[in-house]
Design a protein around this nucleic acid. Sequence first.
DNA 1: ATTGCAGATGCAAATTTTTGCAGAAGCAAT
DNA 2: ATTGCTTCTGCAAAAATTTGCATCTGCAAT
Lengths: 143, 143
Amino acid sequence: MSCHEHVIDQLRDAGVRLTPQRALVLDVVYHSEGHLTADEVYEQVRVQSPYVDLSTVYRNLVFLRQQGLIGELRLEGQPARFEAVRSGMEHHHAVCTACGCMVEVGHCDLAGLEATLLSKYGFRLEPIHLTLSGLCQQCAASA
Amino acid sequence: MSCHEHVIDQLRDAGVRLTPQRALVLDVVYHSEGHLTADEVYEQVRVQSPYVDLSTVYRNLVFLRQQGLIGELRLEGQPARFEAVRSGMEHHHAVCTACGCMVEVGHCDLAGLEATLLSKYGFRLEPIHLTLSGLCQQCAASA
DNA sequence: ATTGCAGATGCAAATTTTTGCAGAAGCAAT
DNA sequence: ATTGCTTCTGCAAAAATTTGCATCTGCAAT
């Protein structure tokens, strides 16, 4: 039916219900290259199924984020954005507070933190998307 | 005037205007032990100065967060909460996705990540508050 | 195929957060 | 003390996100 049966299987295995609305939201996010706002997802969903409600889209975005299937990106001064989390390519974003540019940071770069959290606090970090703040190379240089 | 002149000095040095409203918001957050929602800050502020607007509180919370003077905590299913960032005690929160409990994680625990970001991407991580997700020791054990 | 029920949806309304704009006020220079 | 420039504020309205509730539906068991 679509190009991500594995994801759907993952949901089934988790014992969650696969409704058409949920599948659509998943589809839209996974077929998009960029980072979509909730409203953009909503519009895309409605192209295919005009009676889906915006609140359903929001609920599913929250749900899929909790499942680790999509990442939520919070940039300064704009609504939240969502993107697919493709297995093996989990990543986070480092955003420059000066120029707003973004760097993708592999989840593997957090391996050290993951180990520290586990040994020091017994806490198992999950690969849920993070938005890190700081200065990019250029802005740091010119400061 | 208050117990955090150093913070106020920090603002002055940054060349920003110190309005009574801004000082009040800072005061309220710094005098509170817990994590306040924007609305709670607003109520506290209005005790001392009844004509301050909620939007001003929001604008100052955003501003102070950008300055790294307060931390913003986003917990599942509740409005954002804010807390003072006390120098030398910068920390983040690791939240259990199963039971909702929270662990404080020192910013120093991110030293490794900080180094990786710098060497690999030239990115200078700032000690802006993060909300990490995962499983606490107990929930991980019983899973 | 039918049934039972936990979980999902649509709708309407509430809550939370952000924004536009005109007037007010901090602060550096005079 | 006054001036000028720029930023900040209050107000009103919009936008973004969440919630309550009655109904509906996926899916596991029969």
